[in-house]
Amino acid sequence: MTSSAATATAGPRRGRAVGGLLRGMPLLPAVVLLAVFLAGPIAYCVYYAFTDMQLTGASGTHFVGFDNFTRAFGDSDFVNAVVLTLVFVVGSAVVGQNTLGLALAVLMEKATRPVRAVTSTVVIAAWVLPEVVAGYLMYAFFFQQGSLNAILRGLHLPQQNWLYTLPILAVCLANVWRGTAFSMLVYSAALNDVPQELVEAAEVDGAGPWQRLWRVTLPVIRRSVMTNLMLITLQTLSVFGLIYTMTRGGPGNKTETLPVFMYQQAFTSSLIGYGTAVALVLLVVGALFSVVYIRMLKMEED
């Protein structure tokens, strides 16, 4: 293994490189698809965001630097969209779906088997339905002559035209209705892994149900909580169909979250460049969350 070996290794090394390439060949179709249809558009997204491109074509497109962004941050409609997106994500995902999902998972653990089956079937059914159907059903639910007002009338409670008076609340509740199943499934799985002795020990020590949940269960499942929060935030950030079916961003721009605003700017106002700049903002926010999510998974692995 001295001088003669040194010359001999050159061959196997090249062989290994070729072998490595060959072994990597099955990756090729996936890599090509991803590069053309995902990486390509993202690169385009970054480029277009700095141009004044219009829907009519690329002929009159100029590089405009940060104009789109300065314009966006001075645009009250954009600021409105950012605020609404925040309200939508925090209200419907972080607070709504997350809390409701956890509550359902905790209660279902204590419920009898048939009740558990009924609850999870109903909640999951709302989740499995296509987005547009869910949007339409929620429209019918919150509509002036809809089921919600019918129920309120039956209970002799005040009614209102939800889609006009509180559209963002209606849209948030719609997203909670549609999306809670995911959190419920995540938390049901997580609660299964909580050691029963731990909870019982706390009970013997005199901890009430709230204390047990807050001090024992939640700390044990904190990783699932973080993962769930990340994933539902990412999902909620890009919700378009649900809102568009229910309100089309209206009335006025009261439910115009970033995806809807982006669509309106690019296709209704024909400002592809400006719409893309908004898309880039959305993409960057999504990417940040995605990076945090990966880091958490990495920590879990180590």
Binding site: G40, I272, I294
Partner: peptide
């Protein structure tokens, strides 16, 4: 590569649709 894949599972596809549209037009 795996981290890139995992990262892209989190990207909002909604956000790339406008550039995809422009690309498809071209």
């Amino acid at each position: 590569f795996l981290y890139t894949i995992l990262f892209s599972t989190g990207l909002p596809i909604t956000a790339v649709m406008i550039p995809v549209y422009s690309m498809f037009v071209q």
